[in-house]
């Protein structure tokens, strides 16, 4: 009884078959030649040429990747640096507020005016930085979004407190300067990483 295709293929691939099948194929010219043909065919299949994808395939894949929502390309741990940065900013802001609480008596128009000026200078520095890239690190993007949101909230509070007490106004402007400072740092780092190194480094001590 000759071996069938499944048995011959099993023999070819070295997988177990019945002992009687192996003995038969070893002594049967017809099955032996069929086994040799199957081995040859497998070798020939390996030798078939490879295909090259078209050159335009990568640009199309790249375009599709760039169009994907940013969130789909990141995992939760990618936000860890952003969370740390946001936490640091929040802590600094809180410490600043506490310090102001203790020095409450020192609130005056000159101090407020000084904070407003610093905030305006930081805005000016921010405007000189290159536009944000279309693709960037998720952590950087999240940190910038967080800072901008906090600044917007402060601006709303400043509008509401426009005719309120000076102490409250000073606290808000102080917090705004801190946040603007952080934002300029992060945006500067972002621009530098993308090769758009600004002409000047942020020297906020002077601001």
């Amino acid at each position: 009884m000759h071996a069938d295709f499944q048995e011959l293929l099993a023999l070819r691939d070295g997988t177990p078959v019945g002992a009687e099948v192996g003995q038969h194929v070893a002594g049967c010219a017809r099955c032996g030649s069929e086994l040799a043909r199957l081995k040859r065919l497998k070798h020939e299949l390996h030798q078939l040429p490879s295909f090259e994808p078209q050159e335009h395939a990568w640009p199309l894949i790249r375009e599709r990747l760039e169009r994907l929502p940013r969130r789909r390309r990141v995992t939760p741990w990618a936000f860890a640096p952003a969370a740390v940065a946001a936490g640091l900013v929040a802590t600094l802001t809180l410490l600043w507020w506490i310090r102001l609480d203790h020095g409450h008596a020192g609130s005056d128009d000159a101090t407020i005016q000084s904070l407003v000026s610093r905030s305006q200078r930081l805005e000016a520095v921010l405007n000189t930085l290159p536009p944000r890239p279309t693709v960037e690190r998720a952590a950087t993007s999240a940190a910038i979004d967080e800072l901008q949101t906090r600044i917007q909230i402060l601006d709303q509070q400043l509008s509401a407190a426009a005719n309120g007490d000076r102490y409250q106004t000073q606290r808000l402007w102080s917090a705004r300067v801190q946040l603007m400072n952080s934002l300029v740092y992060v945006r500067y780092a972002e621009a530098a990483r993308n090769g758009d190194r600004p002409d000047h480094s942020p020297t906020f001590g002077a601001i």
Binding site: L48, S50, F51, E52, P53, A57, W58, I61, R62, V135
Partner: peptide, 25 residues
Amino acid sequence: MGDLDAHECIYRALSKPVYTLIRRL
């Protein structure tokens, strides 16, 4: 952009065997 550069490297290294496999199927 760093991710895309890395992706391109992976693509260049693997596109030929992957495309051949798909073409054969």
